[in-house]
């Protein structure tokens, strides 16, 4: 029983990170109907920036906040410079663009900070949470940060005018323009927020997986799985999906013989395919009807 509780809690903790990535993915998907395959690399890059800031002597939290600001601006710049011109381009061109971005970020990070793994500090430490053996303080911290983030996002979308405008632009761009919303900037804003949310995920997972240019590969896939499970159109679903995938991954790894670490990834991917085939709108997403 203790093993079970332990695995579920650990699953919720990693699930928090998947939730972050899924949120970031959904954020951009809502805005432009595309999956950002470079989301993980953007998060990785942000995490390196945080690391660099700390190397220069900043404390964890100042570096954390500054990184969020830089990532936010970076996301907006990427959208303005690279993806806004592709607005009406076919899906395929977008995918190519994301892959190019992926390659560039990965390679530049490797060149700047090299490919050796680096320690990334945790602001929460790694002792047992409240003296218990079930979960570490860092894991508890991950869950806490993500829940706070969620609350903030909820408040932002629910109670601010900009949040309302972003929701309107994402759901019906043409109507949004007709009430005077600059939908193009709402998309840029979505990119900025996605980039910052991804950065949070990166900085939280880095103490666990260590910092290196390829650290987000697997994490992003779980993030995709989470986003798809929750329904790509629902930020709330993305978070629930994140936690579910985290727990699912851990329980499958622990209790199904022969799965171990080797097969964890394919199982997440099988999950993506199964959800896409059986219920493409996910648990909380809206159904999309296509018109001729």
């Amino acid at each position: 029983m203790e093993l079970f509780t332990n695995q579920v809690l650990a699953g919720i903790a990693t699930g928090a990170i998947y939730a972050c990535m899924a949120l970031a993915v959904v954020m951009i998907y809502q805005a432009i109907d595309h999956l950002n395959f470079a989301q993980g690399e953007m998060a990785m890059f942000s995490t390196f920036i945080a690391w660099q800031l700390m190397q220069w002597g900043l404390g964890f939290w100042p570096a954390f906040l500054l990184t969020l600001a830089i990532s936010f601006a970076g996301g907006i710049i990427i959208e303005r410079a690279l993806f806004k011109p592709l607005t009406n381009a076919p899906v395929l061109v977008h995918v190519a663009g994301f892959i190019a971005l992926f390659a560039i970020l990965n390679s530049v990070a490797g060149l700047t900070w090299d490919f050796t793994i680096k320690q990334f500090p945790s602001p929460f430490g790694s002792s047992g949470f409240l003296g218990s053996q079930l979960i570490s303080t860092h894991q508890a911290g991950m869950i806490g940060v993500v829940l706070v983030l969620l609350l903030l996002l909820f408040a932002f979308f629910r109670f601010t005018r900009v949040g309302l405008a972003m929701r309107a632009a994402a759901s019906l761009p043409e109507s949004a323009r007709l009430v005077g919303i600059n939908t193009s900037w709402m998309i840029a804003l979505g990119w900025g927020m996605a980039s910052a949310i991804g950065a949070i995920g990166g900085m939280l997972i880095a103490p666990v997986v260590f910092l290196e240019p390829n650290m987000m590969g697997g994490v992003l896939l779980y993030g995709f799985a989470a986003a798809v499970l929750g329904g790509l159109t629902s930020p709330f679903g993305a978070v629930v999906g994140g936690f579910l995938v985290g727990v699912f991954e851990n329980l499958v790894g622990t209790y199904i013989p022969g799965v171990g670490n080797e097969l964890k990834l394919p199982i997440a991917l099988a999950l993506i395919i199964v959800v896409l085939v059986i219920k493409p709108s996910g648990l909380f997403g809206r159904k999309i009807v296509q018109r001729v």
């Binding site: 998907y29 109907d33 595309h34 999956l35 395959f37 899906v91 995918v95 896939l221 995709f224 798809v228 022969g258 080797e262 097969l263 990834l265 394919p266 991917l269 099988a270 993506i272 395919i273 896409l276 085939v277 493409p280």
Partner: peptide, 29 residues
């Protein structure tokens, strides 16, 4: 067959998953 029901980004995602899973599957004991 599963791909039938998918298009655009969804198909990209499903096939992407297949590609990522393949090396792991080939390594199976």
């Amino acid at each position: 067959f599963p791909a039938l029901r998918l298009s655009g980004v969804y198909l990209a995602l499903a096939t992407f998953s297949l590609a990522v899973a393949m090396p792991q599957l080939l390594k199976l004991g």
